[in-house]
Design a protein around this nucleic acid. Structure first.
Length: 270
DNA sequence: AGTGCGGCCTGTCCGC
DNA sequence: TGCGGACAGGCCGCAC
């Protein structure tokens, strides 16, 4: 499931193949995504040159001449560079055929993802407008978190998974970061101390950087822009490890917080 | 405003 | 072997 490190991995994987290329042809095989792909999509996008690829939270931004493609991979999406004549398989919904003979192919079995064309400032687009700071920037810190957490009663885990608080934190890395910070995910966000938020912010940055360095986390189906899995799953400390022992020898527990599976060590996280 | 929950969607896995 | 159901979860929209 692509979270921030996986999207960053995809971005780095596809960039060398697509930046500077022209979109010669757009093939839409399935319009039903989180937002239906409009009829005019192909006509709007065809002929544009790709100037660069960037990322905001879990959104990929494909900066083109006079417009931007905003792409989200949802739960199950992947974006790959393939030879233009490679036959499309099930769930290969969109191809962008490029001037260098490759296609950028969007595949998304669960169709939770989206691809949107905008000619306005993409960062002002309703999809991106309300996003919190990027976790790997100086704007994201313990001081910022304690400020935002004032009066919040939700669990600290739900709080750091709130995209309005910080962009791009998904379930896996929220669990890992709280373990690394030694903070119990069930605690109310408003009652976590400033010192603890300092640890949480540092842990978030550390786990995301490490995951990016490992090429992301592949649990079942994540592959990068070249079809390669990520290796961070081997380094997960608590996620998916209920019933196994923590390094402290205590058993890792699981509970549901906001409908999401939550993993923690009752001994290490207080 | 903040909170909680249902819905979207398919593949996988488990138990019967 | 087949089938139903639970689960995975990012994000949105709705109700309170």
């Amino acid at each position: 499931m692509p979270e921030l490190p996986e999207v960053e991995t995809v971005k780095r994987g596809i960039a060398p193949h697509v930046v500077g290329q022209r979109i010669m042809r757009v093939v839409v095989r399935e319009r039903r995504m989180r937002r239906p792909i409009p009829r005019q999509f192909a006509a709007r996008v065809t002929g544009r040159q790709i100037a660069g690829i960037s990322r905001r939270g879990k959104y990929l931004l494909c900066d083109c001449t006079a417009g931007t493609l905003i792409i989200h991979l949802g739960m199950s999406g992947n974006l790959r560079v393939v030879p233009v004549d490679k036959p499309a398989e099930k769930h290969d919904h969109v191809d962008l055929r490029l001037s260098n003979g490759v296609a950028l192919r969007l595949c998304d079995p669960r169709r939770f993802g989206l691809i949107v064309w905008t000619e306005d400032d993409p960062l002002r687009h309703p999809l991106l407008n309300g996003l919190g700071p990027e976790p790997l920037t100086a704007a994201f810190s313990g001081a910022y978190l304690i400020l935002r957490a004032r009066g919040r009663s939700v669990s600290v885990k739900q709080f750091i998974m709130d995209a309005k608080v910080v962009a791009g934190m998904g379930n896996i890395y929220a669990n890992e970061a709280l373990f690394m910070a030694g903070v119990d995910p069930r605690r109310s966000a408003g009652k976590v101390t400033a010192a603890e938020y300092g640890l949480i912010a540092k842990a978030i940055k550390r786990v995301l950087r490490r995951a990016i360095a490992a090429g992301g986390t592949t649990l079942r189906d994540f592959v990068d822009g070249n079809g390669q899995p990520g290796y961070f799953s081997q380094r997960l400390l608590v996620y998916g490890r209920a019933g196994q022992s923590c390094h402290c020898a205590q058993m890792i527990k699981t509970v549901k917080l906001g409908q999401r599976s939550t993993y923690f060590c009752p001994h290490c996280q207080t």
